[in-house]
Amino acid sequence: MTEALDNIIRGCQAGDPRTQRELYILFKDKMFGICLRYAGNYDDAQDIVQDGFVKIFMKIGQFRFEGSFEGWMRRIMVNTALEKYRMQCQIININDYTKEIDTVSPSDLSGEISAKELVQFVQELSPRYRMVFNLYAIEGYSHKEIGNMLDISEGTSKSNLSRARAILQEKVRKYFSQSAKIK
C-alpha cells in the first residue's frame, strides 16, 4: 500500500490526471470528514474539500516523502478551513455562556451516539468555538498555536474551548434525555 501510495503521489507530482483522481478517491471521505467538522454546514464543507484538494494538487510537488502524507493532507485541509473561517469571521456574535454546566462523563455516553451526530453537534457551535474545539481537542494543537492561527489570545482560546465543551455537553445531555423520553 505504501509503495502504491508513493506511486500515486509521484504521479500527482507529475501532474498525471488519472493518479490525481485516484488520490482523490483514496482520501476523499477522510478529508470530507475533517471538513465537516470545521464547516458550519454541508455546503461549506464541500467548498473546503474542493479548495483543499486543489491546494493539495498544486502543492504536492513540495511533499518530500518525509512523514505522513495523510498528515500533510490533513494540515492543508485544516488550513483551508481556517482561511474560510477568517474570511467569514468579520463580525461574529458569540453568545457568552456563563452558566456552569455539569459535565457528562464519557462513560455515560457509552457509544450510543453516532459520530455523524457528534459532527452535527460540532457544526452547530459558533465558528470560533468550533475552530478552537477542533484544533485543540481533535488536532491536538496548543492554545498558543491556536491563538496564533485564529489571531486571538491564549486566554481567549482557553475560554472558547471551555465554552465549546459546555455547549457540546449540553447538546449531548439533551440528546440523551430525548432518547430516554422516546424509550
Partner: peptide
C-alpha cells in the same frame, strides 16, 4: 476524557462528499 472521546470518535470520521465534487476540482485544475 471528553476531548479524547471526541477525538476517538471524530478523528477518523469519514463521509462521502457530493458526487460532483471531483468534477469541480477537475474544473479548477
Amino acid at each position: 476524557n471528553m476531548d479524547r472521546y471526541y477525538r476517538d470518535k471524530l478523528e477518523n470520521y469519514k463521509e462521502s462528499p457530493p458526487q460532483d465534487t471531483w468534477d469541480i476540482i477537475a474544473d479548477q485544475l
